[in-house]
């Protein structure tokens, strides 16, 4: 039964993890392990690459190949790994600061090149490991340790950016929607080309405390109430949209990925 097989990807002897009680990184790792087990991708053909930050610790708890890149540069390293070892199933497990601030340019160009990488971004709306500073993905007016009266800058929709940059698969879900999260990761892993899943995660230690979102149960309820299906979101009035976020599949297409475009070449 696939459910039992997920443990072959997880280093159970290195647990408990470093993450705070209720942190979504562990839930996302479990969803990834379950998706890998259901697709029967062997651990010796799987590469889990991660950057720096809370989500960067995920590599300590896996049994497949792992790569710990420098801050934000993980996608650039994995592009190189994919060119040399195209048979490897590459998964990049990044945080919101790692992907959208420090590694923004690598992210946009990996999507533009359509490299065959499944990218999972665990977005907890702040830099959790360094004390809760705001990231480019923190919502407008969010209270963090570097914006005590509300974040003055607008945020960026990283999913829409991945879409216009040329990614083959883009979706967004939350830690509350566990089955949907596993299914989206499974779809991303099965897609040839750049696939991207943004997972909104609670940060019980910093973001939730500063923004008075309550305990971990109330934070998960907040995710459940605020993140509505994209079809419903698109029908809303603009004023109403400001109170909600969307989740769902944004992009699903089959453009040729970097390696197949490279092999075929423009010469025909």
């Amino acid at each position: 039964m696939p459910l039992a097989d997920y443990k072959q990807y997880v280093a159970m002897d290195r647990l408990p993890s470093i993450w705070c009680p209720g942190c979504g990184n562990g839930t996302a790792l479990k969803a990834l392990a379950l998706a890998l087990a259901e697709l029967e991708i062997p651990p010796d053909k799987t590469l889990l690459a991660n950057g720096i930050g809370c989500s960067g610790r995920v590599g300590d708890y896996v049994r497949c190949h792992r790569f710990h890149g420098t801050h934000g540069r993980t996608l650039a390293f994995v592009t190189g790994i994919k060119l040399v070892r195209p048979e490897i199933k590459a998964v990049c497990f990044l945080g919101d600061g790692d992907c959208a601030a420090i590694g923004m340019s690598h992210f946009v160009h990996s999507a533009r090149r359509n490299v065959d990488i499944a990218t999972i971004v665990v977005n907890n709306f702040n830099y959790g490991m360094t004390g809760g500073q705001f990231s480019p993905l923190s919502p407008h007016n969010a209270i963090t340790s570097t914006s005590s009266s509300g974040k003055p800058e607008p945020d960026i929709d990283i999913c829409k950016l991945a879409d216009v940059a040329g990614a083959n698969y883009v979706s967004r879900t939350t830690i509350y929607h566990v089955t949907e999260m596993k299914n989206y990761i499974k779809e991303a892993l099965g897609k040839k080309g750049f696939s991207f899943v943004e997972i909104i995660s609670p940060c019980p230690t910093y973001y939730a405390r500063y923004n008075k979102l309550g305990n971990i149960i109330q934070q998960l309820e907040w995710l459940k109430d605020k993140f509505i299906p994209i079809e419903k979101y698109n029908q809303m009035e603009d004023a109403e949209k400001e109170n909600f976020f969307w989740r769902g599949r944004l992009t699903d297409r089959n453009l040729p990925d970097l390696l197949s475009a490279y092999t075929l070449g423009s010469r025909g």
Binding site: V10, M12, P16, P21, G22, C23, N25, K30, V178
Partner: peptide
């Protein structure tokens, strides 16, 4: 239903 298993962040 395994909802507790899927929600548990700590593999416990």
């Amino acid at each position: 239903c395994r909802l507790c298993f899927l929600h548990c962040p700590d593999f416990a």
